[in-house]
């Protein structure tokens, strides 16, 4: 069974980079270009892990985490936050919101894949 990733990021460049890294590592890749679309397609994609940007139109990353962690469809699927900031403040905010972990942009393929592997048990 392949591991499904749902990446939510408003930057096409980042989505492309994620797609290349993750498809290369054997993940099934799905993406959404804002938080709202992300939570909308979440039930259909039914991912094993979610990667989300923080700054996005319509619904930001915290909104995504909040919706996925509390709404009627609450889920314990791992949610990884993609951020350009590596401040402890942001990390603890993300953690308190319910994020599983974080990746600091720019990410390198190796660490991203190993983090995902650790959160999902995915085998390349």
């Amino acid at each position: 069974m392949t591991t499904k990733v749902l990446a939510i990021d408003d930057s096409r460049t980042i989505r492309n980079l994620l797609r290349v890294s993750l498809e290369g590592a054997g993940f099934e890749f799905h993406s959404a270009c804002d938080g709202q679309e992300g939570v909308d397609i979440f039930p259909d994609v039914d991912p094993d892990v979610v990667i989300t940007d923080i700054n996005m139109p319509k619904m930001d990353g915290f909104g995504v985490i909040d919706t996925l962690r509390s709404g009627p469809n609450r889920t314990n699927v791992p949610i990884l936050v993609l951020t350009t900031e590596s401040s402890d403040d942001l990390k603890s905010r993300a953690r308190n919101a319910g994020a599983t972990g974080w990746i600091v942009k720019p990410f390198d393929d190796g660490s991203l894949v190993s983090v995902l592997r650790r959160l999902t048990g995915h085998v390349s």
Partner: peptide, 13 residues
């Protein structure tokens, strides 16, 4: 100051 791009988390290698 608060701008740090090198912090790569969890680089197992």
């Amino acid at each position: 100051e608060d701008f740090c791009f090198d912090a790569v988390t969890l680089d197992f290698d």
